[in-house]
Amino acid sequence: MDLQLASFITAGALVVLGLYGFFFVDNVIKKIIALSIISSGVNLTLVAMGYREGGYVPIYIPTVEFQVFSKHMAYPLPQALVLTNIVIGASMLAVMLALSIVFYRKYRTLKTSVILKED
């Protein structure tokens, strides 16, 4: 099977699974995990977009001629995007996990429907 197609299917499955978990699971930590799964799916989509069958790594290789290199290089832009997105996602997750610790200390439960009830 084509590697790129397989990664796209995996990414789609990850996003759908993550959305399912986000909307239907009641546990705060599991919701946060689901969010992290969504963002992994998005990252995988981006990386798979720049994939090229038998391509070179997009770093400068002195032994390869530039013309050949530029023809066979993988697309480097999505990789830069993914790096940035991982950092943003990590900071979001850190804040959310810190807040869920605060809520757990107060309510002694992780149920979202209890912690975030109407007020």
């Binding site: 909307f23 979202t112 975030l116």
Partner: peptide
């Protein structure tokens, strides 16, 4: 329109 998370997520979905 309340801010119960279950209702909010329902309307978002």
């Amino acid at each position: 329109n309340s801010n119960h998370i279950v209702l909010q997520l329902f309307w978002i979905s």
